[in-house]
Amino acid sequence: MIDAALDILASRYAYALLFVLLGTGLYMVIANENLVKKLIGVNLFQSAIFLFFIAMAYVDGRAPIIEGKSHGVGEIASPLPQVIVLTAIVVGIALTAVGLALIIRIYAEYGTLREDTLREVRADE
């Protein structure tokens, strides 16, 4: 039983690690009062997903894109997840940029980055 668990952990340690990272990111989003840190949490969360895609990218077979030439058959890195992650990173950066722009605006208007203070300020208005 423990052996089996250890075995899974040994062979799939990457997944376990990634989901810890995922959880950390999500926790930051939920629990942290600082808006910038919330956004960092979102980034962490997304990074974990990117790593998850990379980690699973090993497939049996040959590279699909190169037609006709049969290179070595065995475990190779599928190019598809790489492409996906590249795209997702771009999307993630765009989101971070928009998020930071919003945070700057909020800071300029309310003079705070903390959500609890923000809530008080807004309640007073």
């Binding site: 989003v29 808006l35 956004l39 997903i49 997702a88 919003l102 605006r105 909020i106």
Partner: peptide
């Protein structure tokens, strides 16, 4: 108003988490 920035940020964080959840599912 500044309210709209707060609302947009709230939407951004939740929306991104939602889309990321979908991405995990796709993975």
């Amino acid at each position: 108003g500044p309210e709209s920035a707060v609302a947009a940020l709230k939407y951004l964080i939740l929306g991104t988490v939602g889309a990321s959840m979908y991405l995990i599912g796709v993975g």
